[in-house]
Design a protein around this nucleic acid. Structure first.
Lengths: 214, 214
DNA sequence: GTCTATACTTCGATAGAC
DNA sequence: GTCTATCGAAGTATAGAC
């Protein structure tokens, strides 16, 4: 028998996502989360032991889903360059679905994972691991030049996340006439990053002897 | 007559930098800032009207210094590709000097500039503007292919900032044995980004027509 | 400029009825 | 599972002496 609407725990998690993304762990208010989820505070504490447990549950769930999606791309049969394109589009699609993801990821990086337990940190680590796997596959297949997987993660994947996270502040800057120049749509930026990634990873034609890495 | 040590306002700003970087605006505690600066809370409020004013002062000062440094590189006589290398090294050097910069920048992006007034937002905007200027110069001189300056900022500059901001969480992940693979030093990553930037901006051979400047 | 002591507020969490 | 009411801790900011 289908429920007419989401149960309390799910509504609480959804409300928590909005609140934590906008204000961070310390800035988030349990009262606001409860109100937005249309439950009272006691109900929230009935389902989640504490603010911290709610936070960890949200992050673990989100990181696991992002990691799963990227691992599925890594495990597909496509060519390395194709996987890379799909991974970059994939993260943009993931953010379209989970709009709070970039803010929360950025905040946790800035904070050094201070509020996270081992399980949640492990879930977070699946994201760079999946991107690194795609790059390593490409390198092994000689479709990509030799690049440190973590370097690839930061130069290919991180810009997309930060670009999407930065939408509010760009809007704020535009509204106050503090920037000039043409706008840059999310789609255009995704295309730019796919292009940049291909160029960054393209094997050197004359590289079959050794890379003169500066 | 030289002071034996920094005056109170400077010590407060230095202490605030550490605290705000580690815990964010909401998580920062005025008591901790005062204690670290070796002043009492009343002294802090004597020099700064409020927690918010202290925060804005710190950020404005920091963004202005970062922007100045990048504008100096943009205004130098070097070739575009050389300027790009210097800008990437420059931001790494800036972070070595102002270690709190990446965390604070990331947090403000995540927060959409919520705590910032117009002046401080304007100071923040000088950073992408300076990077965009270097890219635009290169494009005009036909040393770079046509790339949206903001796209270049996010694909070249942001990764360095996030990589450096991510040092604590990488250390945490390593300590808990949640990552595998060789380490990647900050210097190696800077080199990687210089390389990636050159490749991303290299003009298409078919487009090379006019004589490159300088 | 510097201090101690404290007023005022907000927030996370719980008690206890239904 | 759900609610109202409230406690106790912690935090920002200020008063007022020196």
């Amino acid at each position: 028998m289908p429920r007419p609407r989401r149960a309390s725990p799910d509504r609480i998690l959804a409300a928590a996502a909005t609140e934590f993304a906008a204000r961070g762990y310390a800035g988030a208010r349990v009262d606001r989360i409860a109100r937005r989820a249309r439950v009272n505070k006691a109900m929230l504490y009935y389902h989640f032991r504490s603010k911290e447990e709610l936070y960890r549950t949200l992050l673990r769930q989100t990181f696991e889903r992002a990691g799963e999606r990227l691992r599925a791309i890594a495990a597909s049969r496509a060519a390395p360059a194709e996987k890379l394109d799909r991974a970059i589009e994939g993260i943009a699609a993931f953010v379209a679905e989970y709009a709070f993801f970039p803010s929360i990821m950025l905040r946790e990086v800035a904070e050094g994972g201070a509020h996270l337990d081992r399980r949640t940190l492990a879930a977070l680590a699946t994201v760079p691991a999946a991107v690194g796997a795609i790059v390593a596959q490409g390198t092994a297949a000689r479709a990509f030049r030799e690049v440190h997987p973590l370097a690839a993660y930061f130069s290919i994947f991180v810009p997309v996340v930060v670009y999407l996270a930065g939408a509010p502040i760009r809007q704020e800057l535009a509204a106050r006439h503090l920037v000039n120049g043409a706008a840059l749509s999310a789609n255009a930026f995704v295309g730019h990053m796919q292009d940049a990634a291909r160029r960054a990873l393209a094997p050197d034609p004359a590289t079959l002897q050794g890379p003169p890495h500066r």
